[in-house]
Amino acid sequence: MTESKRVIVSPKSAPVENNWWVHMILVTVFMIAVIPVLWVVMTAFMTKTQTQVMPPEIFFKPSFNAFGVIVRQFGMLTFMAHSIIIAVASTFFSVTIGTFCAYALARFSFPGKEDVSFWILTNRMMPAVAVILPIFMIFQTFGLLDTFVGIIFLYTAMQLPFVVWMLKGYFEDIPREFEEVALVDGDTWLGAFRKVVLPLMRPSITAASIFVLILSWNEYAFALFLTGTNTRTLPPSVVTFTVSTEVSFDLLGAAAVIIAGPILLFVVFVQKQFVRGLSMGMVR
């Protein structure tokens, strides 16, 4: 038994370092990053008076009052439903369309291919506020303001460049021979794509979907201007009922928990998939 436990160390290997100070730095950074988040979560369980106490109380009796108020009085669950519909639909469309776009850009050569690739990227270059006014007017003209079709359409267009550029690289990593062998074996082009390329791309497509879903879920600027009572998503809705003459920090905290909670759980749940997809092709 002792035989198997002996570790063979190469004389040329670097000595194992005991980096206690690295851990100190990591803990410090972690504290700085996590305390504000923790504070928001704590506020969510305070009453309004507790949030205004000076100095702030670290130990208090938690109450679910704020959650009750935003859910019952302000209909937070309706906004959440809107958010889910819009995020899921725009993710579905942008990833589906983006996959085909990326495949075409990765596989086929046609005149102006590089220009198309770059043009797609430029769509992502302008900040939202720069285009919000023209888009608002276009939406007004076409009657798309405060409609699911409008905002899903916009998010799809917004996320498309991201999906295309991310997946294009992964498609290029898949040897063309795979499809060619399938074609010679007697498959159609679409069959080869479906049976050979897509299974190989699944981790990357999943990773892109997760990314896009999170971006859509958190989007604020467009949602604030282009959605109304029928389609309002979570991020802009918070402002309307927490900020009036004064900021209701208890409600704000509860809303933040409701917005961030699901996506946080989701990411924890799919983390493995996500990392696998992103690192695909890197480890060979």
Binding site: E177, F178, V181, A182, L183, V184, D185, G186, T188, L200
Partner: peptide, 29 residues
């Protein structure tokens, strides 16, 4: 089209689908 020619081909490499077993690779055609 390649599938209408009744030819079979093997490359120097990358001829096998990595997500299928050897059996499924051979069964594919």
């Amino acid at each position: 089209a390649p599938r209408d020619r009744n030819v079979a081909m093997v490359y120097d490499r990358n001829s096998l689908y990595p997500h299928l077993s050897a059996y499924e690779n051979m069964a594919y055609p």
